[in-house]
Every structure is written in structure tokens, then in C-alpha cells.
Simulated scan of single mutants.
Amino acid sequence: MDEQTRIELEAAAFRALVNHLRERSDVQNLDLMNLAGFCRNCLSRWYAEAAETREIPMDRDTAREIVYGMPYEEWKKNHQR
């Protein structure tokens, strides 16, 4: 498999994971941490870190909004127990 195809497949898998987590708002971050060792906040932190390594300015709130599909505070208000 060539490098570009690998990158495209990884990007598609990432988008599917993010969409799945958005649809499963009933699953709390604590549940994810206990079972998988990572949560939506971890994913958004990794996203921001990847941007930083490419010198793309991105703050934590922007990365969280990308992962959560809405501002983090709004998600917490609507979905956090």
C-alpha cells in the first residue's frame, strides 16, 4: 500500500471513530477511559498536538469542538451526567 492511500484510510477511520463517538453521547468519557484508556478529550488533545507538530495554530477548545461536533461546554451541558 502506498503512503497516500495509507493516510487516506487512516483519515477515514479517524472520521468514522469521531462520528461514532458523536452518535454515542450516552457513553461518558469516564466510561471510555475505564474501558479503552482514552476518551474524547484525549482524542482532541492528540488532534491539537498533531496540528502543533505541523505548525498549525489550534487551541484545545477548537480541537474539542472538532471531536465533539459542538463547543465542549455545550456538549457537557447536554450529555454529561
Rank of each mutant, 00 (worst) to 15 (best):
E23P: 00
R40M: 08
M58P: 03
C39K: 07
E3S: 12
V67E: 06
Y68H: 09
P71R: 05
K77V: 02
A48D: 08
R40W: 13
L32I: 01
M33H: 00
E73N: 01
T62P: 00
A63L: 05
M58Q: 11
Q28D: 07
K76T: 13
E55T: 06
H79E: 11
E3Q: 11
N19H: 04
E10I: 03
Q80D: 15
E52D: 05
E10R: 10
A51I: 06
T53F: 04
R40C: 07
R60N: 08
K77I: 13
A16N: 10
L32R: 04
G69W: 05
M58V: 14
N29E: 06
V27E: 03
L30K: 14
G37V: 05
M33Q: 03
A50P: 00
E52G: 06
Q28V: 05
L17D: 13
E55Q: 12
L21K: 01
A51P: 01
A12H: 08
Q4I: 12
F38L: 07
D61S: 08
L21F: 05
I7R: 14
Q28S: 03
I7Q: 12
R22E: 00
K77Y: 06
R40G: 03
M58C: 11
L9Y: 11
D2Y: 13
L43C: 02
N34D: 14
F14H: 06
L35Y: 02
F14W: 06
D59H: 08
Y68I: 02
R54K: 14
K77F: 11
M70L: 12
I7Y: 04
A16K: 13
A13K: 03
D26N: 06
R40P: 03
M33C: 07
A63H: 01
N34V: 10
Q28W: 05
I56H: 00
G37D: 10
A50G: 06
R15K: 14
E8V: 13
N19C: 01
T62R: 00
C42H: 12
W46D: 11
I66F: 12
W46I: 07
D2M: 02
N19P: 01
S44I: 00
L21A: 03
S44A: 13
M70A: 05
D2N: 08
L35I: 02
R24H: 11
R24L: 00
L35R: 12
D59M: 02
W46V: 04
R15G: 13
R6A: 15
V18D: 10
E8P: 10
F38Y: 13
S44Y: 14
C42Q: 09
L35G: 06
E23H: 04
R45K: 11
E3R: 10
L17G: 12
T5K: 15
M58E: 03
R54F: 04
E52R: 07
L9D: 13
K77E: 15
R15P: 03
D26G: 04
A16G: 02
A11T: 11
R54W: 14
A11K: 14
N41M: 06
Q80E: 08
E55P: 03
E73T: 07
M58S: 04
R22G: 09
R81Q: 11
D61R: 15
L43N: 04
K76D: 06
R54I: 04
H20L: 15
N34R: 09
E23G: 02
R45W: 01
E49Y: 08
